[in-house]
């Protein structure tokens, strides 16, 4: 157990700001973001990589914040829902989620949005079935997914100028 509690200094960029902290080797990235930096927009749903509530970006790629250790993010650039909200990158998607009521309890929503952003950033047309497949690693117990698919489809079509 001693090695798990070993502490390491890490320096990384979180939402554009450089932070340096000393963390336990065993601390997950999402616990680090939530507990050390108070970035509580990323959530913990299962802590074994199934539900997607902890989805964040690590060097531009979405990862499970519960399967990534904080020490693995040393030297990396991390983006969370708070960061992409600030940059306005997915403002259109966020607005469409609200209008379409594509969330209820909202616990899955930050992870869902970051996963959807990956699809939108591909800049390609996507069918409803493709959108559903893309979201299949993100669990939502409230909506039944239909409204989420609607919101992503609408945003993607708008961005591509097809509707």
């Amino acid at each position: 157990m001693t090695e798990l509690k070993e502490r390491h200094e890490i320096t990384l960029t979180v939402n554009g700001e450089t932070v340096t902290r000393t963390v336990e080797a065993r601390q997950h990235l999402v616990d680090f973001l939530r507990n050390e930096l108070q970035l509580t927009g990323s959530h913990l749903g299962c802590e074994h990589g199934v539900c997607g509530a902890c989805t964040v970006r690590l060097d531009g790629e979405i990862v499970r914040g519960c399967l990534t250790l904080a020490v693995q993010a040393d030297g990396a650039a991390v983006e969370t829902i708070e960061g992409v909200t600030e940059t306005g990158e997915i403002a259109d998607l966020q607005e469409t989620f609200v209008e379409r009521n594509a969330l209820q309890c909202g616990f899955c929503t930050p992870g869902m949005l970051l996963t959807a952003a990956e699809l939108l950033n591909a800049g390609k047309p996507a069918t409803r079935a493709e959108i559903r497949t893309h979201l299949s690693g993100n669990y939502c117990r409230c909506t039944g997914y239909h409204a989420i698919v609607d919101a992503i489809e609408t945003t993607n079509n708008k961005r591509l100028g097809t509707k």
């Binding site: 939530r34 509580t40 927009g41 990323s42 909200t85 009521n101 969330l103 909202g106 930050p110």
Partner: peptide, 21 residues
């Protein structure tokens, strides 16, 4: 009508019990 709570959630500003210090 849309829900004001939904706007908080999409911006990562939901406040669940675990977020309370």
């Amino acid at each position: 009508l849309s829900r004001p709570g939904a706007r908080r959630s999409v911006m990562g500003r939901g406040r669940y019990t675990d977020d309370i210090q």
